[in-house]
């Protein structure tokens, strides 16, 4: 019996045809997605991995809301030029707590996976306010309204609680203090001991938008940008390790170092 005569009969039965479509179409996804949960090495170990603070979560949501991902990737590929330009290639673990991931598919602007700490807060504020003030040829939109829009912080506890439901290990204390922590992170001088205790001593506490008065959306977005690439050192450590292994005096060091 040829496939054609088999099909000749199949195409006379709507339900059988439907079932055939579902079965044939389901295979690919199952084989490619399910093992990503079972193969251990898919997501690297990173004991130092830290969580986004409530302020950074809020900033990330603004990044999503404004569609920054439409122009910026957060994924440094395993290609020589990308590593040289943007830093160590991205590891899966670095976006482990990213619901959803923001790897992106288009680079109208540069990759942002490791932009955290690369520039100053002032620069980000000036740039977001009007990119052409600092980069004359930029085609990035101006986000002037961020600085004049107060950040909504009252519901951050619920955001964290929801994130916990999908697997991010926020503690009860983190959820309870989310609003307070967000304000504290953008308002140096207030009670931030709890914040540091919950999210680690390296938590950046600053008036990110240059204004201690009000916590704005600019504070949140800049706080998020400044943490990009710094949730874990795993990638840098890995790079240091293989560089050392392969070095043997290969990489020249400058005088005075």
């Amino acid at each position: 019996m040829s496939i054609f005569s088999f099909h000749y009969r199949l195409e006379r039965h709507a339900l059988r045809f439907v079932i055939a479509i579902i079965c044939v179409a389901a295979v690919g996804g199952m084989v490619e997605i399910a093992p990503l949960f079972t193969i251990g090495e898919t997501v690297e170990a990173a004991p130092d991995m830290r969580l986004y603070t409530p302020l950074e979560v809020a900033g990330r949501n603004i990044y999503i809301r404004e569609g920054c991902y439409a122009c910026h990737s957060q994924m440094i590929r395993t290609l020589r030029d990308e590593v040289e330009r943007y830093g160590p290639y991205s590891l899966a673990v670095e976006s482990k707590y990213d619901h959803p991931m923001l790897w992106g598919s288009k680079r109208t602007g540069p990759d942002l996976a490791r932009v955290g700490g690369k520039y100053s807060d002032e620069w980000h504020v000036a740039h977001l306010n009007n990119p052409r003030d600092v980069v004359s040829v930029s085609v990035m939109p101006a986000y002037r309204f961020l600085k004049r829009t107060a950040l909504r912080t009252d519901d951050l506890g619920r955001h964290l609680a929801t994130l916990r439901k999908v697997g991010v290990p926020y503690t009860d204390a983190m959820i309870e203090h989310a609003t307070k922590d967000a304000i504290a992170q953008a308002t140096p001088g207030t009670d931030d001991a709890g914040l540091q205790e919950r999210y680690g001593g390296a938590t950046q506490i600053r008036a990110f938008d240059g204004n201690t008065g009000e916590v704005t959306e600019m504070d949140a977005l800049v706080a998020y940008l400044q943490i990009l690439g710094h949730l874990t050192d795993a990638a840098a450590k890995e790079q240091a390790a293989w560089e050392k292994a392969g070095a043997a005096g290969a990489i020249p060091t400058a005088a005075g170092e």
Binding site: G28, G29, E32, I33, L36, F37, T42, V43, A92, V93, E94, S95, K96, Y97, D98, H99, P100, M101, W103, H159, T162, L163, K165, V166, G167, V168
Partner: peptide, 15 residues
């Protein structure tokens, strides 16, 4: 917040 994160989310998204 999406159920998946990171690499699994990326694969699901592009699937």
């Amino acid at each position: 917040y999406s159920a998946f994160s990171g690499v699994q989310d990326a694969m699901t998204e592009w699937w």
